[in-house]
Simulated scan of single mutants.
Amino acid sequence: MISIVPISDVEPQAVEHLLDRAFGTGRHERTAYRIREGMPAIPRLSFAALEKDALVGTIQCWPILFDGDDGRDVPLVMVGPVAVEPARQRDGIGRDLMLSALNAAVATGDAAALMLIGDPEYYGRFFGFTADRTTEWRVPGPVEQRRLLAMGDSVPNGGGMLGPRIAALA
């Protein structure tokens, strides 16, 4: 039986080891890490999946900022990474973690502007993320533009750069 708990209930080193197994030790070079560089994850939106006290999955969400070309700054929540123990992928653990994070975002008022980098066929179909408003967004590194996804009423449209939000969410 899988239980979803706050990520703060799990040793940070265990989370890091799971991320290494799921994404490889070179994961820190990915664009997603540059977007949220220096920001702590948002505890109320970050979860771990446990099975018999063993860590089998995590999701973390991060405070980031859209720095619009028109001068507006829009706070966003970056969803992910969703990491699942490689032997347990396709067991629905990632879906359960996503639903936990999205439900928490709605409950805490953090769901107005969510974004992630991921497969549009999956995240669109199951969770409602689209690239409709992200076509002019820029990021500090390489990304397939179609994988830059967002959802929420406050997601900005138009050109701008994504980066860390200096004043992190409490």
Rank of each mutant, 00 (worst) to 15 (best):
A54H: 07
A54C: 11
A54Y: 05
V56T: 02
V56C: 10
G57S: 00
G57D: 10
G57T: 09
G57I: 04
T58M: 05
I59M: 00
Q60C: 01
Q60R: 15
Q60A: 12
Q60N: 05
Q60H: 08
C61N: 01
C61F: 13
C61M: 02
W62D: 00
P63C: 04
P63Q: 02
I64C: 15
I64F: 01
I64S: 00
I64Y: 04
I64M: 14
L65P: 02
L65Q: 15
F66G: 06
F66N: 03
D67W: 08
G68S: 06
G68C: 14
D69G: 12
D70E: 10
D70I: 13
D70C: 04
D70M: 11
D70T: 07
G71S: 13
G71P: 03
G71Q: 12
R72L: 08
R72Y: 08
R72Q: 14
R72S: 11
D73K: 09
D73R: 12
D73C: 00
V74Q: 10
V74H: 10
V74T: 15
V74L: 04
P75K: 06
L76T: 07
L76M: 15
V77I: 15
M78L: 14
M78Q: 07
M78W: 09
M78K: 05
V79D: 00
V79E: 01
V79P: 08
G80V: 11
P81K: 00
P81I: 05
P81S: 11
V82I: 11
A83Y: 02
A83C: 09
A83G: 11
V84M: 05
E85F: 06
E85P: 06
E85D: 15
E85Y: 07
P86W: 05
P86L: 09
P86Y: 03
A87C: 09
A87F: 11
R88D: 07
Q89K: 08
R90T: 10
R90H: 08
R90A: 13
D91G: 01
D91T: 13
G92S: 12
G92W: 13
G92N: 15
